[in-house]
Design a protein around this nucleic acid. Structure first.
Lengths: 377, 377
DNA sequence: GACAATAAGTTCAGCAAGTGAACAAATCAA
DNA sequence: TTGATTTGTTCACTTGCTGAACTTATTGTC
């Protein structure tokens, strides 16, 4: 177990990149004397290591950085069948990939994970020794201990202590997390939001997910439901949603919804890319669908900006294509629906991601617990 | 200056009410030994005092509570002319009230405050000695140091270091804050949100304000704009708003908007109460206006719930009347627009407040800085 | 009414994590 | 070569906390 100062140091480095002991001391409000000891301990533990030497006036400074091979983590996504598994190092780099069959029975899942682990670890014998955590991403609500799945429609679960079950079967420290929240943690720890304290990730795919970082910490909400923008009413009296309401964002602005709308309108498109192509050659129906979907997503994001004033919005998309009409409409809708004085003040980044995104996010949940810990330090 | 443990103790008591040393120690994760000293110091400082003795088995416990007369604070609202001023104690109780003329010149305001202070303090000579801070509530954006007004349309300000100016003139530690955020702090410190870590306050009056507490701390947003729900687009292609967009919440769901809509529709109502009366006797126009306004406010609050999953929504209203049709419609619109599984999960409290609310909020900003401090301890 | 049982709060020696000042180390600039 | 400069370490000392033993104030029981 790391001390609170050690964790703080790791957090600062993870936010700012490699830093010298003196700079670290200053930015943590500690003396150089204290810093010296903390750094020494972390280096001994193998978590930190000296990297570049920076020459200036006076004695050169030695930058400290996370030691990539200081710890390894496993991440598993329960969002697809087969379920992707990844092995990542302390820098979030993916070292190995595997797939395992999916099940809806927690005990079976734990068994399948235990079975698949040796193959994942086979290529890197040292990773097995330093395996420091396992993360699982799933669609549903997770408690703040990242141990129990409170509710998952997709998996048909209610109060399943999945982390404990997996931990018993594998012997590895396990944490679970909601899919969108896991992606947000991964962006904070290893991605493009490292140094941003307040931001939201919107994951655009078959569904629309969202998660907030506030004050440098994942904000889970009072019932774990923060960021569930998919079912906000975006088209009053719109189409019925499977949730029971009407006009939810999810009925218009997910890839699934776009495909369904295309089908309903008699288009033969089976992907967003195809629909974009149709629109680019002037297909009025395709253009209308993209406008409707993009306008809805943009409006929701504009609300997010007005409500929470984040420092960045990161839109991740798997199959999507944000360079075409859809992306343009989203951008325009955002700009048109935030307070004019705000417009352009909030950076919107879009990022194409591969299908590893959920497993990566899962691994970063384990990494986050190892580096920064669960507590509000 | 208080230590971090002293501040933590004060925060726990402010959240939970009077507690014994032993309970405090347990809830702060400290030993009874440490607690003993911390409590002794705070009692010596006059901030804490022993109150009730609770008898059970064993030695009775002595509850510790904030000493109301341990410190006093001044709060001023720059939202009305004349500007209300209050003197409050450490429990948030209002001890004295005054008014002072309003100005738009920061230097003049500081002078007017300095002039008005003696009269406010006249009745309580001890308060003058223990005056520990001054807070100012205003409409506009305030930086996170609660020192500079970044932007205020109402006052015509841009980057005004108001806190410093007032402090120089009066010699009192001064903090400024946005009106809605000040009210949220006052509800957290002294009101009905004491023990709630995540909540939002929606202040319904001439305009619609909102502020969030997240993780027990005021969340200001990246540019200080968190909670600015007044200009979220709630009626796409709705009426033009003075902000330049269309269909903002502010154009439908503020008291000002309701009055304007009534006037435009030819009703002679000059207050929400009158409009409610018309509606109760079956005036179709009045009913329509109240439905439109209530539906809009409810939808915005539903979005707030979906986006942030707060533990409570507190609606404060000055002139408003939430027992009538308007309140009912708001409630219904909230329920109808949150994920059905969520419905009823988020407590909505409405609270009628007097016109002191802004000045009280301002005083609580000063109290918050005294008790808990500006730092994320 | 005496006396155990119980729990609150205090005291005190000791420990862990920090500080400040002095110092050693490694470089650049003159 | 020497001085200036800045990094990082060492060391004596302070601070805030802990654990254990103790004192204190009460209830319950015989």
């Amino acid at each position: 177990m790391l001390t609170s100062s050690q964790r703080q140091l790791l957090r600062v480095i993870s936010e700012s990149g490699p830093l010298s002991r003196t700079v670290l001391a200053a930015s943590m409000g500690l003396s150089k004397a204290a810093m010296s000891g903390i750094a020494r301990d972390l280096i001994t533990l193998g978590v930190l290591h000296e990297t570049e030497t920076v020459y200036g006036q006076g004695r050169p400074s030695i930058l400290l950085d996370l030691h990539p091979e200081g710890a390894f983590f496993v991440g598993i996504s329960l969002l697809e069948d087969p379920a992707p598994m990844v092995l990542s190092d302390l820098n979030g780099k993916i070292i190995a990939r595997e797939n395992m069959p999916l099940s809806r029975d927690p005990e079976v899942i734990a068994g399948l994970i235990a079975d698949a682990l040796p193959k994942l670890l086979a290529r890197r014998p040292d990773a097995a020794d330093k395996l420091s955590g396992l993360g699982v991403a799933l669609s549903g609500f997770v408690d703040e201990k990242q141990a129990n799945c409170v509710q998952s429609t997709l998996l048909g679960w209610q109060d399943v202590p999945l982390a404990k079950i997996i931990r018993q079967k594998t012997g590895i420290e396990t944490f679970i997390e909601n899919d969108a929240k896991a992606v947000a943690v991964s962006e904070k720890l290893f991605g493009s939001a490292r140094d941003i304290q307040n931001f939201s990730v919107v994951s655009f795919g078959d569904g629309v997910g969202c998660a907030h970082f506030i004050g440098g910490k994942l904000y889970r909400g009072n019932h774990g439901g923060a960021g569930e923008i998919a079912h906000c009413t975006i088209e009053p009296n719109g189409s019925p949603c499977r949730c029971g309401k009407r006009g939810c964002l999810d009925t218009v602005a997910s890839i699934k919804a776009i495909k369904e709308m295309s089908k309903a309108e008699g288009l033969a498109c089976t992907s967003l890319t195809e629909l974009e192509e149709e629109a680019s050659v002037g297909n009025a129906v395709a253009i209308r669908i993209l406008h409707r979907a993009g306008g809805a997503l943009g409006l929701a994001i504009a609300h997010l900006i007005q409500f929470n004033d984040p420092g960045m919005i990161l839109i991740t998309h798997v199959e999507g294509n944000f360079d075409g009409l859809f992306g343009t409409v989203v951008q325009q809708a955002i700009e048109a629906n935030v307070l004019p004085r705000y417009a352009g003040q909030t950076p919107i980044r879009t990022q194409r991601v591969d299908s590893d995104i959920w497993a990566r996010g899962a691994a970063s949940i384990a990494a986050h617990n190892f580096l920064i810990g669960p507590n509000p330090n």
